[in-house]
Amino acid sequence: MNAYRDPKRYSWLLSLLVPASLVVGPAVYLWRHQAWGLWVPVAVTYILIPLLDMLIGEDRSNPPEDAVASLEADRYYRYITYALVAAMWPCIIFCAWFVATQHLPWHACLAVVISTGMMGGFCINVGHELGHKRTVLEQTLAKLVLAPTGYGHFYVEHNRGHHRHVATPDDPASARMGESIYAFALRELPGAWRRAWALERQRLGGAPWHWKNEVLQPLTLTILLWTALGAWLGAGILLFMLAMSLWANFLLTSANYIEHYGLLRQIAPNGKPEPCQPHHSWNSNHVVTNWMLFHLQRHSDHHAHASRRYQSLRNFDEVPRLPNGYFGMFLLAYVPPLFFAVMNPRLLEAVGRDSARINFQPGKRERLSERYGIEDRDHTFS
């Protein structure tokens, strides 16, 4: 029997183009002094990539299970994520230097804030992949790559909070049916911080102000980086770092919003939510964005098997499915009426119009049930 050869093996190298592409705008500006060029990375991300996802379509293929062990043991895939950690710190520092030293109109500054924030969001995605792994090196690199955008608490909150409470009303990182992304952000962003801090307080026996606190470790790196940039480039650069970090963090919020929108785990006889299954997450197999985001869009398998590495994440046929890749879905989410028009019918189809499987926004259950004809049924959990 021939050994399995991953057909996507070399396509993952395309992820290395992400930080490179986001410094193209500043590089072109330094060469030609054309401010419009700073918007090119933004247009590529929010226009070209959703179009390519739509045109190229989906890849639903899976590696054979008997090849997964060797596939996950292949260090080639890890080296790509390691290289990205090494690349993104200098890229963010370069963008900070660029803003501080060039006389840019306001719209050009805005473009660099958004594009650098997108790089910061990519940092969080790489930190997500690394943070789920059990090696000390990968966990350390996860904290390192989360630090530039001040989102180091994600390492604690996501792994020990979100994965435990996902698709329940108790999870600030699971969106509810009828909840706009803006209402979700106001709940999720502070909720994630509070949960991370509470988890570390509990782990450290009620004394969180300790060097072992895994919220404070990356936060210390954030403070050191921002202080060094302020000393080098002037205190005004801190406004840029804050703005781009807010956009990076909002991109993570955008991903959280679409990944579990409206889905609800049922309560088992023991009073606890049922185990997380693939159908408790929205999935997408759109090729281009999956290449960029290390199969983050195969979210169903990720939540069911959190330690599984990106190269071996699987597609499942009978799971809720998004109509586009993440960046196209982000644009849709930013216009709530359009998002609801597209996603609410898909949600109802995914759950069989069963209200017991829907995570409703408080105060909207009755109105949504009446509008969409959602059924209340008697359930026996099995």
Rank of each mutant, 00 (worst) to 15 (best):
F316Q: 12
A231S: 09
G121L: 14
R176Y: 11
F330K: 00
L221N: 06
P278C: 04
L204H: 04
A167P: 07
F250Q: 06
T222G: 13
D171H: 06
F94W: 01
W36M: 01
W197S: 05
S61W: 04
P50C: 02
N270D: 14
L216D: 08
G363F: 03
R187L: 05
L38M: 04
A27D: 01
R194Q: 06
R357L: 03
L204Q: 07
F250Y: 12
W211Y: 15
L225R: 01
P7A: 06
A228V: 15
S254P: 11
K8W: 11
G271F: 00
I49H: 00
W282A: 13
G373F: 14
R134L: 11
L338F: 11
P7H: 13
I124D: 09
D53E: 06
E349Y: 10
A356L: 07
L137P: 04
V215R: 11
G152A: 06
V99A: 02
N285D: 14
Q34Y: 04
I47K: 00
D301A: 12
G57H: 07
L51A: 14
N315V: 04
H295I: 04
L204K: 06
Y4R: 08
R298D: 03
D53L: 07
I47Y: 00
Q102E: 15
V18D: 09
Q34A: 03
H158R: 07
L84Q: 08
G161C: 09
F381C: 00
V287K: 03
G191A: 07
A20E: 02
N125R: 05
F381H: 09
R377D: 02
A235F: 07
N213P: 00
P275Y: 15
L141R: 12
V215C: 14
S369F: 11
F240E: 00
V18T: 03
P273A: 08
R203A: 15
L199W: 00
A350F: 04
D378N: 13
K364F: 11
P148Y: 15
V351M: 11
M88E: 00
Y46T: 11
D354N: 13
H107I: 02
Q34N: 02
H165K: 09
P362M: 04
F330E: 05
L48I: 03
L186A: 09
H286T: 01
R160S: 08
Q311I: 05
G363D: 13
H295E: 15
P7V: 12
L313W: 05
H305W: 09
H379F: 12
T135I: 02
K143G: 15
A173N: 12
L331C: 15
R365Q: 14
N213R: 02
M118E: 14
L186S: 10
N159Q: 10
V44E: 04
P273Q: 03
P320G: 03
E349G: 13
S245N: 02
V42P: 02
P323E: 07
S245V: 04
L332G: 00
L293K: 03
W12C: 03
T227Q: 13
W232R: 08
